[in-house]
C-alpha cells in the first residue's frame, strides 16, 4: 500500500545552551492516501518540528521520513505538496496575483494552465477582490488566505497545514473547515496540526496525538474517545492525567465568579 506520509522512528534534537532539547523522540506515523489526519498535542509537543522534517527543512538526528515513497530530503518529494506554515507571511511587496504566479513558476507550471489555476485558487480562498493589491495592505485573515492560496497553486495531492485557523475569526475558521472538507472530498490527503479540537473532530478521519515528541494516541476520533466524551476531554485525560479533566469545562461556581469579576468597575 502506498502512503502519503511515512515517518519512521524519527528523532530530532536541538542544541540548547549546554544541553539538548529532544523535540521528537522515536516518532513513527503513517498517513494513507486520501485521509484527513489531525495532528494534535500540547504546545512544544513537536508538531511543527515533525512537519519541518517532512518538508526537508530539518535533517533528523536519526530515523527518516518519506512523502509518497520518496525521501523527504529530496526536492522532488515536494512536487505534490502544498504547505501552509505556522506563522504565514510572504513577500509583502508583491500583489496577491504576483505571489501566486511566482509560486506556480516554481512548479514549472505552463502559462495558460497557471493563469486558470490562479483564478481558481483565488476563488477558492475567497480573496479575488484583493488579488491585485499589495499583500502589505492585507489584514491578518487575508494574509492567511493568500498564503493558503499559494499552498494550493500546484493542485497538491498532499496538503500540510500547520495551525491553519490560528488567529482567524469564527467565519474564517468555518471557511478553512469547509476548505479542508472539500479537499478531502476531492481525494486529497490533508495533514494538519491544530489546537482547535472541536474543528479537528469535525473534519478529520483520524487524529495523531503527540506529547513530548512521542506519539501517545492515534486512530479515528470515535475509537479514541469514550461514549459522550469530547476530543478535548480525551486530550486533557491523555496529556495531563485524569485530574486535569476537571479543568476542561468550568463549573457553574467558576462561571459565577467570572461574572462577578466582570461586573467590577
Amino acid at each position: 500500500m502506498e502512503f502519503a506520509i511515512e515517518i519512521d522512528n524519527l528523532n530530532v534534537r536541538f542544541p540548547a545552551r549546554g544541553s539538548t532539547v529532544q523535540a521528537l523522540d522515536g516518532l513513527s506515523l503513517r498517513v494513507g492516501l486520501g485521509e484527513a489526519v489531525g495532528f494534535i498535542g500540547p504546545n512544544g509537543a513537536g508538531k511543527t518540528t515533525a512537519i519541518h522534517v517532512l518538508l526537508g527543512f530539518i535533517e533528523p538526528s536519526s530515523g527518516h521520513a518519506k512523502i509518497f515513497g520518496q525521501d523527504s530530503r529530496q526536492s522532488v518529494a515536494r512536487e505534490r505538496i502544498g504547505y501552509l506554515p505556522e506563522h504565514p507571511d510572504t513577500y509583502r511587496f508583491l500583489t496577491g496575483r504576483e505571489l501566486l504566479r511566482m509560486a506556480g513558476k516554481l512548479f514549472l507550471m505552463k502559462e495558460k494552465n497557471l493563469r486558470e489555476r490562479i483564478d481558481a485558487v483565488l476563488r477558492l480562498v475567497d480573496i479575488e477582490q484583493a488579488a491585485d493589491r499589495r499583500i502589505g495592505t492585507y489584514s491578518k485573515g487575508m494574509l492567511q488566505r493568500i498564503c493558503l492560496a499559494q499552498a494550493l497553486i500546484n493542485n497538491p495531492d498532499l496538503v500540510i497545514l500547520d495551525e491553519p485557523t490560528g488567529g482567524l475569526d469564527p467565519l474564517g475558521r468555518m471557511d478553512i473547515r469547509k476548505l479542508i472538507a472539500r479537499l478531502r472530498d476531492e481525494g486529497k490527503t490533508v495533514f494538519f496540526s491544530s489546537h482547535e479540537l472541536s474543528e479537528v473532530e469535525l473534519v478529520c478521519d483520524r487524529v495523531a496525538m503527540l506529547a513530548r515528541g512521542r506519539l501517545v494516541a492515534e486512530g479515528p476520533v470515535t475509537d479514541l474517545v469514550a461514549p459522550g466524551e469530547s476530543l478535548e476531554r480525551f486530550f486533557l485525560r491523555t496529556v495531563a492525567g485524569p485530574q486535569s479533566e476537571q479543568r476542561a469545562t468550568p463549573t457553574s461556581r467558576e462561571m459565577g465568579n467570572r461574572k462577578q469579576k466582570g461586573h467590577r468597575p
Partner: peptide
C-alpha cells in the same frame, strides 16, 4: 526573519 523561507523551500526548490 519574515519566515517566508518556509513557503519558498516547501516548493520543489533546492
Amino acid at each position: 526573519q519574515r519566515g517566508t523561507i518556509y513557503a519558498l523551500l516547501a516548493k520543489p526548490v533546492t
